[in-house]
Computed example of a mutant assay.
Amino acid sequence: MVSTGLAGRGVVVTGAASGIGRAAALKFAREGAKVLVADLSREGAEETVKEIETAGGVALAVVGDLSDQRVVDQVVERAVEAFGGLDVLVNNAGIMDRMSALGETDDAEWERVIRINLTAPFLLTRAALPHMLAAGRGSLVFTGSEAGLRGSAAGAAYTASKHGVIGLVKNLAVMYRKQGIRANLVAPGPTVTSIKVDADPEAHGPAVIGQLIGANIGRLGSAEEQADAIVFLASDAAAFVNGAVLPVDDGWSAV
């Protein structure tokens, strides 16, 4: 059995108050990693930390808007200070759009989705890179989406944001592979989480997408199944995996 090599490593997981992020944070902790839980929800973040600590692990929480540079700096500084370095960054936090077609997407929806789903991972990765470069190693894992692989899984804003994240991952993989840094992405299919979609079923976007999704998806996945893929990509078991986009979707991307 290949060792994950995660014991004692410093890990940041964003969006770890619930869903895929919480499942990933718990799994990293079970592998012996020290985990910083970053999220907008104080209650959820503290619950994740408590669960890790109750099981004998090491964790701490930073609460705030991850598209705010001040919060980003705090996340990275706290991790480095508490853990002695930052080995793994999991850019998992994200929000859905309203499944709006482009013609129905207002400025507020577009800017909010792009800010959280694309700008926040950019800011966090930029802040983490100097520490990883100094150490000569690092693993960056992004939570993308099936919407990053096709145009029929979400609205215009979410689809654009997740296509953008894939481009970011591939560029990172090329730019920093000689410095020992890997960047990979999981593309979840429909997964049971607490994320809600505030869509108007009478609008053009949801009407079109609803028919397409219903015809092509397989079963619903669990947050734990997504977490397994995230931890694998972050670990030494995936030491030669870089720039990969891994669908975790029961074959939806193969349809």
Rank of each mutant, 00 (worst) to 15 (best):
P206F: 13
V75A: 08
T14Q: 01
R22Q: 15
M175Y: 14
V58R: 11
F240A: 02
I195N: 01
H131I: 05
G189T: 07
S3D: 15
M1C: 13
A17K: 05
L123Q: 12
A93W: 00
A157G: 00
G180V: 03
I52S: 13
T159S: 07
H163C: 05
T54S: 14
L185G: 10
D65I: 09
D249C: 04
H131E: 11
S161A: 10
A101T: 01
D39P: 09
T48Y: 00
A160R: 04
A157V: 00
S100T: 09
T119E: 10
D87R: 06
A183T: 14
R219L: 15
V169H: 08
G21S: 01
L66F: 07
L140E: 04
R150S: 14
M96Q: 11
V88M: 12
A153W: 11
G148P: 02
L102D: 10
W252L: 06
V241T: 07
T4R: 10
T14E: 02
A61Y: 06
I213K: 07
A207H: 13
S222K: 08
L233G: 07
F240L: 07
I217T: 13
N171M: 04
G214D: 07
V76M: 07
N171P: 08
R22Y: 01
D200A: 08
G85C: 04
G84W: 06
A160S: 12
A93F: 00
L86F: 10
G94T: 11
G103E: 15
F142V: 00
R219A: 15
S41I: 10
S3Y: 09
M96H: 05
L129P: 08
T143R: 04
S235I: 06
G218K: 14
E224A: 13
G84S: 08
V248S: 01
V248P: 09
D250V: 05
A135C: 11
A239M: 14
L133E: 12
I181R: 06
G138F: 03
E81G: 14
I195A: 14
A234G: 07
G19S: 03
N117A: 01
E46F: 12
D97T: 00
R9H: 14
G103A: 14
D73Y: 06
R30E: 14
H204V: 09
L149V: 08
A79W: 12
K196S: 13
A25H: 02
V75I: 15
P201M: 09
A238T: 03
T14L: 02
R115D: 01
L246S: 05
E43D: 15
S139Y: 02
R177D: 12
I213P: 01
I20Y: 12
E31V: 11
V90E: 04
E47H: 09
S100W: 04
S161C: 03
A33G: 06
E109A: 03
V245Q: 02
E202I: 11
T125F: 00
G44V: 00
L60G: 07
F232I: 11
P201G: 08
